[in-house]
């Protein structure tokens, strides 16, 4: 167990150091989410009454598409450098390798969220509460697990850019439904946030366990 944690940490650290030095992903994603908000700002007639109804949808759309790019890159970089095979042949547990990749990609998406949420408050004038941030972070965990699993699955295929959203988006719907509900409540809609957060936590546990078990078959076979 300790060995697997050490492997996951080493993989995540390596990915984060590589991103820090190359700055390939995060600046581009940050620009993308800001541009998405600018377009939404001009595309919708936003006033103080309509903003809380529109903002959650815009937030999840921006997050979903930023996530697809972030998780797709997690394995694309390994493919381009022909390094994945060297990593797999080290005898490290595939689940630990997968966990490290998902952890790094999830953290990079959190960096984008750190740009997205203040920008959302700025463009839409909606409040950013602790509950909203917590809901987005909870959704990020499960989305990272699923996104990285499918990114690993399609990494060696020719039509990977097309297949990744086709495989991932349907399984992200539970996070978007529960996360959307939590964000709507955080922005003033009726309802309770606790139930949506508990649901997000349940989905996180379920998908983290399932993807860790599936990682062996995806990465090793």
């Amino acid at each position: 167990m300790t060995r697997s944690i050490a492997v996951a940490v080493a993989i995540a650290r390596k990915d984060l150091v590589a991103e820090w030095r190359t700055r390939e992903l995060v600046p581009a994603l940050a620009q993308f989410v800001v541009l998405a908000l600018v377009i939404a700002n001009f595309g919708f007639q936003i006033d103080s009454r309509s903003a809380p109804a529109i903002a959650p949808g815009v937030l999840w759309l921006a997050l979903v598409f930023a996530g697809l790019v972030a998780f797709g890159r997690a394995f694309a970089a390994e493919r381009e450098q022909a390094t994945l095979e060297a990593v797999l042949l080290t005898a490290a547990a595939p689940a630990a390798i997968f966990a490290g990749k998902a952890l790094a990609a999830g953290l990079l998406l959190v960096l984008c969220e750190a740009v997205l949420l203040p920008a959302l408050a700025l463009f839409f004038g909606v409040p950013i509460s602790f509950g909203l941030v917590f809901a987005v972070l909870l959704a990020t965990v499960g989305m990272a697990a699923l996104g990285c699993l499918f990114a690993a699955m399609v990494a060696q295929l020719r039509a990977r850019e097309l297949l990744l959203p086709l495989l991932t988006l349907p399984l992200w719907i539970p996070f978007i439904v529960a996360g959307g509900q939590a964000v709507q409540v955080a922005m003033g809609a009726d309802g309770t946030m606790d139930q949506a957060l508990k649901l997000l936590l349940d989905f996180d546990i379920l998908f983290v366990v399932l993807t860790s078990l599936a990682a062996r078959f995806v990465l090793d076979d």
Binding site: Q81, A82, A86
Partner: peptide, 17 residues
Amino acid sequence: RGRMGYVAHAPGIYGAL
């Protein structure tokens, strides 16, 4: 895999490290 070493045709090293 713990007992063998493999050098592939491509070096497969991380350029950013």
